[in-house]
Each structure stands twice: as C-alpha cells, then as structure tokens.
C-alpha cells in the first residue's frame, strides 16, 4: 500500500480535491445528521435524547399525511406517467426520419432543460382561469373555468401533468434508441409473413422494449421518497398545500422555517434511510433481472 502510494502519488494528488470536496460538503453534513438524536442548543453542547424526536415524528398526525402525499404523488408520477414515453417513442418510430419527426423530437426534449421556476411560470399562464388555453377550451365547450392550481381535487393532477410535459420527450429517448437498435431482419421476417403494423408493434417492438421498461420502472421506484421538491415548491399555495406537502418540503419548512432543527433532521434521516434502502435494493433487483443497474 505504502509503496503504491509513493509510486502513484501524482494520481492520488489528482483525486484529492474530489475526495476533499466530498469529505467537507457531504460526509460532514451526513455525520451532522446525528443531531436527530440530540436536542439542539444554540450555545453549548447539544443534549443526547435518544429516539425522542423519532417518537415525536411518528406520533405527529401531520407527518402521516405528508408521507401519504409523498407516496401518492410518487406513485402517480411513476406508474401513470410510465407508458407515455413508450407510446411517444413507438409513434415517432412510425414516421420516417425527416423534418416532422425531428421537429417533434427537438420540441419535446426542450422542457426537460427548463427550470421548475420557469415551468411553473408557463403553467400558471397555461391554466389561468381567464386567459389560459385550457380554460378557454373548457369555456368553448360551455363549461365554467376551473382554477386548477388552487383546487384541492386537481392539484396533484397538475403535478402529474406538468411532470409529464417536462419529461415525456426526454424519457422517450431511451426507448427510441432501443427501437432503433432492433435487428432489421426481424422486420423483414414480419414483412414476409404479411404482418400488419399493429402486429409488428405488438410482437416485435414491445417485446424488445421489455428489458428497458423493467429497468426504468425498477430504478424509478428507487426514488419513491423523492416526490419532486423543486416542482412542489413552485406549484404550491395555501389553498392546496395540505394535498401536496411532501417530506422534503416538510423538512425544509419545519427545519429552516421554524428552527426545529433536531425534529426536522429526524424526519430527513427517516427519509434518507428508507430512500437509500429502496435505491440499493432496486439497483440490485434491476441488475439481477436485466443486467443493468442504477450506476
């Protein structure tokens, strides 16, 4: 070990800044999470209180509502959104490479690169009860305008819709690349058999996409505890917050907003442990089933 340290000292020196970065900006804060087991003191040493903050957390009814919101919003985003990029990729593949297909692709990838602040700004306009396109359309149908952003029954659907709008194009890339990679002889064989386009999609394209689908689905489940902090912060308001308040927004509000540092750290540690377990197990499961892991 010492010998190789000496021989490769330049290499280790080149790695040092990265290691230092993680030690300072990552390891120190992770170690700081032990605050969950202490009472925070502004002056003097923090006092060890064991599981007090966790007991408080699990006896706080609001926390269960927040956990429920997190799980519902994640489930909507993972399962209801899941088929959309696949459908987009399959439809794109039905058109020859040309200005139409390229145009749709270029436009549909773009929202992925916009910040949630910008997307929220666009969607506030989009859903505006007076000038927004959606409500103008509803008015045309003889219906009254709906204020989607302040209505408790619609707000989660707004999160799903805006997430889909942002990600459908970008997430279709992996499926589209998989379709382009399908062996051309399969198509020729189908042609000789006189298969219809529908049959080709059902019996050639979809089966070829299964591995990608399973990988994407499993790995997304690994991020179940992250329901989308940046998005919620930009779409939330007093009227609907109880429906879309998630663990991350709760930790932020309780911790930095009302200075309950220890309690919020306990909530954050709970989320971190569950989340890490999920990511590691879905990674291992995916690697076992499809040979592809999260990293």
């Amino acid at each position: 070990m010492l010998k190789s340290l000496k021989k490769d000292r330049v290499l280790y020196l080149m790695l040092l800044p990265t290691l230092l970065f993680f030690l300072v900006f990552h390891v120190i804060p992770i170690l700081g999470m032990r605050l969950a087991f202490y009472d925070y003191r502004i002056k003097g040493d923090n006092i060890f209180v064991g599981l007090k903050h966790f007991e408080k957390l699990f006896s706080t009814p609001v926390f269960f509502q927040i956990l429920k919101n997190t799980l519902i919003i994640s489930a909507m985003k993972i399962f209801l959104f899941f088929p959309l990029p696949i459908m987009l990729a399959i439809m794109l593949n039905e058109f020859r490479s040309g200005p139409f297909r390229k145009g749709v692709q270029i436009v549909s990838y773009l929202p992925h690169f916009l910040s949630w602040v910008v997307i929220a700004g666009i969607w506030i306009e989009f859903l505006s009860p007076t000038t927004g396109v959606v409500n103008l359309f509803l008015n045309q149908l003889g219906m009254e305008s709906i204020d989607f952003l302040t209505d408790k029954s619609t707000i989660r659907w707004v999160l799903l819709a805006s997430e889909s709008w942002r990600s459908i194009g970008w997430d279709s890339i992996i499926y589209f690349a998989a379709i382009l990679g399908i062996d051309a002889t399969l198509y020729e064989a189908a042609k000789i058999d006189g298969a219809s386009r529908g049959a080709v999609i059902r019996h050639i394209i979809l089966p070829e996409l299964v591995v990608t689908m399973v990988t994407v689905l499993i790995l997304n489940i690994g991020f179940f505890m992250n329901a989308g902090l940046d998005q919620v912060l930009n779409f939330t308001n007093a009227a609907v917050n109880s429906r879309i308040d998630i663990i991350d927004t709760y930790v932020y509000r309780v911790g930095l907003g009302s200075s309950q540092y220890s309690f919020a750290t306990a909530a954050n540690l709970f989320k971190g442990l569950v989340g890490t377990t999920l990511i590691v197990s879905t990674h291992l499961l995916s690697r076992r089933l499809t040979g592809k892991g999260a990293w």
Binding site: F22, H26, I28, P29, I30, G32, V251, G272
Partner: peptide
C-alpha cells in the same frame, strides 16, 4: 493498476445515493 480503486468507487457511490439534506448543508 491503482491501489484502492474499489474502495474509492464504493465511497463515491455512497456519496451519490445518500443525501445529507438541506438542514445539515445549511449548518455546514
């Protein structure tokens, strides 16, 4: 032939999946 490569990779992957969260980052 770098010695300790595997250990570094494990360390980095732990860094990737475990996020310390906003409160401790603020304190840091």
């Amino acid at each position: 032939k770098l010695a300790g490569k595997k250990a570094f990779m494990y360390f980095l992957i732990i860094m990737m999946i475990f996020d310390p969260g906003i409160i401790q980052e603020y304190f840091l």
